[in-house]
């Protein structure tokens, strides 16, 4: 049978390419973006304090579970779920395979010579296949975070709007967009069908699938915006709680 070319024909090895554009810029930005979020969120999750201020609750700590027997930060009880969701997200997979594993670093750019590769067929990456279960959890989180956002408008029983209320609302909104533009959801909601026109259920599924498909085209965008809003919400509440800044009340 005909074959693929051996790697010896053209120069190969990490970073070799004839590309003349700044192909390295994207992976560098991803390393920077995901890296700084990772460092901050680990630190914030480990703090175990300053996560609430007035009616605001940091999304890193929601839902909040306080147990006597748990001596560490309550964030650790729940954060594995959104972390798992993002870690197995089809978009983030692309981003970190490229930026952190250089597999490949960019298109038509060489990789580390001769490393073993099995894609997502072996442990640990075969676990990526459970992404949809994280999606189920993430969907529950969206309801919880939306409730938090709602709560953020009630100051001691009175309706009000603070910058924090808006921050939490935006956060719930963008997390919602991110979550419901998920590829697994797109499959479950209708993508699994081959035929959209043969019964009324199919037609309804076609509609939802079309809407999710439109959201899905911007999945990367939602991923980054929601990453920023989550981080920012925690920073904001933390700074308020620490008394470093003051929450501005609009109403």
């Amino acid at each position: 049978m005909a074959r693929l070319a051996p790697n010896t024909m053209f120069k190969s090895g990490l970073g070799t390419t004839q590309r003349k554009d700044n192909w390295w810029l994207q992976p560098v930005l991803v390393v920077f973006g995901l890296g700084s979020f990772g460092i901050y969120s680990t630190w914030a999750a480990l703090q175990g304090n300053h996560y609430a201020f007035g009616p605001y609750l940091s999304p890193f700590y929601s839902p909040l579970f306080i147990f006597d027997w748990w001596h560490w930060s309550p964030a650790l009880l729940i954060l594995w779920a959104p972390l798992g969701f993002r870690a197995t997200c089809y978009y983030y997979r692309k981003a970190y395979y490229r930026a952190f594993f250089a597999d490949p670093p960019a298109c038509a750019v060489g990789e580390l010579a001769e490393h073993r590769y099995s894609g997502e067929t072996k442990f640990p990456f075969i676990l990526q296949n459970i992404h949809r279960f994280f999606f189920y959890l993430a969907a529950i989180f969206i309801f919880i975070l939306s409730y938090d956002a709602y709560e953020a408008f009630w100051f001691d029983g009175h309706f009000g709007i603070g910058v924090g209320s808006l921050v939490l609302t935006a956060n719930a909104l963008f997390l919602g967009l991110y979550t419901f533009s998920c590829h697994s959801f797109r499959h479950l909601i209708g993508g699994k069908r081959d035929c959209f026109s043969n019964c009324s259920l199919a037609k309804a599924q076609y509609k939802t699938w079309s809407i999710v498909s439109i959201l899905n085209q911007r999945h990367m965008l939602w991923a980054w915006i929601s990453l920023c809003t989550v981080g920012f919400a925690d920073v904001y509440i933390r700074l308020c709680a620490m008394g470093i800044i003051h929450d501005i009340r609009i109403i």
Binding site: R98, C107, A108, G119, T121, H183, Q217
Partner: peptide
Amino acid sequence: FHIGLCNITKCCTEVCPEHITITD
């Protein structure tokens, strides 16, 4: 066909002249 070997890094989509969203 070993679909599991694809790690969805999307270079195929980037180069497709017919703009087929191969990966997604």
